[in-house]
Design a protein around this nucleic acid. Structure first.
Lengths: 338, 338
DNA sequence: TAGGGTCAGTCAAACGATTGAACGACGCTA
DNA sequence: TAGCGTCGTTCAATCGTTTGACTGACCCTA
């Protein structure tokens, strides 16, 4: 009952030619010289038998898998959803399939993932997950092209694509400054996150061009979650005089920041303005609708794919994607009172 | 400079044995009889050379890819994020890698995806995307085991896993009834969505056990997006006397429903209670925090994998996952006024 | 001491596609 | 009519593993 799968040989037999011909027809080999009627017969046979090339055999022979891997921390984080979408579409455009894995699940440590991928299953690996030195070493030992996405690597051989997070922070802070804010605090991301550090740097830089000093108590760290944001905001309120504006390192924390402000009976934007990084769909539907900095996350994913495919593993790659960054002005920011 | 990749033969040579031995050691072949010191030599050689089995060769020989495919409409939808997470972890637990593709991108129609996957790249395919009859036929012609996830298939050969959406609707409506609501309307999902129909059915059933009639104007359809929810809610307000409670078919539409109610100056939950399906992380951070019905989305994904691997392609599979469904009572529901 | 039974391995044929090299037929030219 | 080039096609090695069949050494037992 199980119809054996159709191979090149079957097609060749039906078309009355050698399988080499069929292979070259399938792959549109430019060196192939063939009579039109022969080609016709071959195509017909392919059609009739419903032949589909076996990718395992092809991969084995060509040592190319036609697949790229992408490891992210968590599917539930919409930031990565955007990156995946961009990467997938770029991969497909180049005839590759994208395998996306998350590294946080019970069964899916990075290392286990690397093992499962084994050799010859992917042609390259993109990592958007935090990576331990051990893992990075294992990664290098695979002999695969790899690329860090949205974070810089820690080794001495650099291969990464990131966004201009400092610039994003500047856009946000400058927006607040233009509105007339002077007392601007920052809810930063976790120390371990590369993006968080760059956004904090951008905040400091933007403040530096003004004459407004930034003191240690103007910055509080959260862990990029709503709860973390809520706690960081509470800390800021406790420590200093009430700010008139907050720059939040990501939207998830901004959600918590809004919670804390609501509890403290501070109105947004009348009493405090809030602006955050990443224009996720969610931002528009918060109350009040959140002013954000839109970042080219899809482009980031796409660029990672292009760089991965377009460079040899030894090349140094250190690119900053700068396209299409802009401030999206919504309801959570306004001029300060008085 | 390019170090050739390490194969079984290299390991065998270093260990001074035949490659067959190495293969059986690697795969823990139970029929293998081997001296402890030989095994030791082999393992050492593997270690020293950093051998990793080539999965293309392995797939070719065994006609198993060790990979499962999952096609979803959109990575940005958190409902699918949950399904992916569950599926991935189940797949990994069974030694498989999960390839997740979205079918909405510019380059990624279902058909193109199926072509790219070719033969021998995945051992089975799970579809959470809406599927046209043409696509379903193509799917069947692949000779791969497949499974519809969270939607029923349209062919005569059934293979699907779904959730008990009618029951979810009942839980929601019963919650409202218990609070004392009588005038309960429903913002339903799009007609084409199987889940939407089942939730609407559940709503009707739950209302039927009471003596409260459900009229046509008590139901409005949206497209599962915030905007769709906003418009559907506006329609309900226009058409009938103001309801005291709304059951919304998903959280995305609930976001829009809240917007519309806010614009209409109706307070939630004082004037109107709102409850929606799916306890996504977002629900907790809306204002007011949304009462929801938690659905076992991860289990759904995991079960899909188990069924896919544990059934032959000809089997009929029609399973409803019923675990762990519960009402999550937050701030958006309360007894009606007066 | 012939024969049988482990034990510990080796041999070699697949799996299906790719690809450089070889080959026969034909037409041309000298 | 020998020689050569071109056209259209076939040949066969190869990619790295898996796995059933086979073998040689050794020990026991009759």
């Amino acid at each position: 009952m199980t119809t054996r799968r159709v191979t090149l040989v079957d097609v060749a037999r039906l078309a009355g030619v050698d399988k080499a011909i069929v292979s070259r027809v399938v792959n549109a080999d430019p060196s192939l010289v063939i009579r039109p009627d022969t080609r016709e017969r071959v195509l017909e046979a392919i059609q009739n038998l419903g032949y589909r090339p076996n990718s395992a055999a092809r991969s084995l022979r060509t040592a190319k898998a036609g697949t790229l891997g992408l490891v992210i921390p968590d599917f539930a984080n919409p930031v990565y959803a955007e990156i995946i979408t961009g990467a997938e579409s770029a991969a497909l455009a180049k005839g590759h399939v994208l395998v996306t894995g998350s590294s946080t699940g019970a069964h899916s440590s990075m290392e286990r993932y690397l093992d499962l991928l084994g050799q010859g299953r992917v042609d390259g690996l993109m990592l958007a997950s935090p990576t331990t030195p051990g893992e990075q070493q294992k990664l290098e030992s695979l002999g695969l092209p790899w690329m860090m996405v949205n974070r810089r690597d820690t080794g001495e051989h650099h291969r990464y694509v990131i966004l201009d997070d400092a610039q994003a922070a500047k856009l946000a802070v400058e927006h607040l400054l233009e509105l007339g804010h002077r007392k601007i605090v920052h809810v930063a991301g976790p120390f371990g996150a590369d993006t968080a550090r760059r956004r904090a740097t951008g905040y400091r830089q933007a403040m530096k061009v003004t004459d407004i000093p930034v003191r240690a108590e103007d910055i509080a760290r959260g862990d990029y979650t709503p709860r973390g944001g809520a706690e960081a905001m509470a800390e800021l309120l406790r420590k200093g005089p009430a700010p008139t504006a907050v720059f939040v390192a990501n939207v998830a924390m901004a959600v918590g920041v809004l919670d804390t402000l609501r509890r403290a009976r501070m109105r947004v934007p009348e009493d405090v303005s809030v602006v955050a990084v990443h224009d996720l769909p969610l931002a528009e539907h918060l109350v009040p609708a959140l002013t954000t900095v839109r970042m080219p996350l899809q482009e980031l994913g796409a660029r990672a794919v292009d760089l991965l495919l377009g460079s040899s593993p030894e090349d140094e790659v250190a690119e900053v994607v700068r396209t299409a960054m802009e401030l999206v002005y919504r309801e959570s920011t306004a001029p300060p009172k008085g």
